[in-house]
Design a protein around this nucleic acid. Sequence first.
DNA 1: CTATACTTTCAATAATTTTTGAAATTTCAG
DNA 2: CTGAAATTTCAAAAATTATTGAAAGTATAG
Lengths: 168, 168
Amino acid sequence: MKLSDAKLQFVASWGAFGTHWGINRTMAQVHALLMVSPDALNQDNLMEQLNISRGNVNMNIRELIDWGLVDRVLLPGQRKEYFTAEKDIWKVVRLIIKERKKRELDPMLKLLEQLKEVEGDKKDRQVKQFVDTVNGIKHFGQQADKMLDVMIKADENWFVGSLMKFFK
Amino acid sequence: MKLSDAKLQFVASWGAFGTHWGINRTMAQVHALLMVSPDALNQDNLMEQLNISRGNVNMNIRELIDWGLVDRVLLPGQRKEYFTAEKDIWKVVRLIIKERKKRELDPMLKLLEQLKEVEGDKKDRQVKQFVDTVNGIKHFGQQADKMLDVMIKADENWFVGSLMKFFK
DNA sequence: CTATACTTTCAATAATTTTTGAAATTTCAG
DNA sequence: CTGAAATTTCAAAAATTATTGAAAGTATAG
């Protein structure tokens, strides 16, 4: 397979993959393209290679920068802005975990904390099932929260070494 | 907070949460409602409580059954079909991991396996970056794959006990 | 300065996804 | 069987989400 075709396939698949993870297809494609590009790219490069508009590139690049996945780079003697993506997959994963934990898990735990205070007779089947379900999810969420915190802080060697050995 | 309000909030939040995970909002809401209901519900119950059409209920219930998250229940002497959700959150998580691994991770690893066969001089910056990125992702993906397999097979005590102790 | 290259914004439009509801199909009690 | 009850299907409509592109804004070379 030729490099150009391989890139195309990679970008397309990463985009499709992204949609299953609450990430917009184009954002994932921009990210994919930058990950396999050794050199920084500018907005025009991205517009051309992905066939998308300037506004679209701009919006998605901004979002990727917010996530910490892409950096703005100023090349000396160049007026244009260039962009590079973090290439170390383990760092990428940690950035994503960190951001999603903040945006999704933390607010969910906060809500569950409130919901378990529901009024009513704990003997009532309805009340009991609600409280049990909420507590079960909260308990699991708190465990996951701790685990993710450790992962966010850990470096790759620790992860591949200790954790992966743990999982045989 | 009253039970009815708490349920409403839980269902709404679980629905919003679902959208970040590639799950359709209504499907997540149906699941949420069944998780906090001690008794099995029928299509009419769900239509009424979630204010959605019969077709919508039917479609989303079918999807939840596909995922293994909801079971059809036939109550004796009742013509209607009733539905219950798995209540054990750890089982729920394992079912979701299993299904998403099959639908997303496995196909992605298969693709990466092909893509690393890209032709071209490994000294070429472009080729090198592509191969390195693809291999990095593949390596990580394979580790994650193993880890998830262990989790899918593990029971709750193992998870909370060993793994969680591991993460302090 | 100021002309120009470049970036950002955002209302309008397009594309995609979800929902509806009525018709078709299936199921089963009598 | 028959007919009423229940479920399923799916084309059309609605809702949501993504994309465009031109105008406005910003920065810098000369």
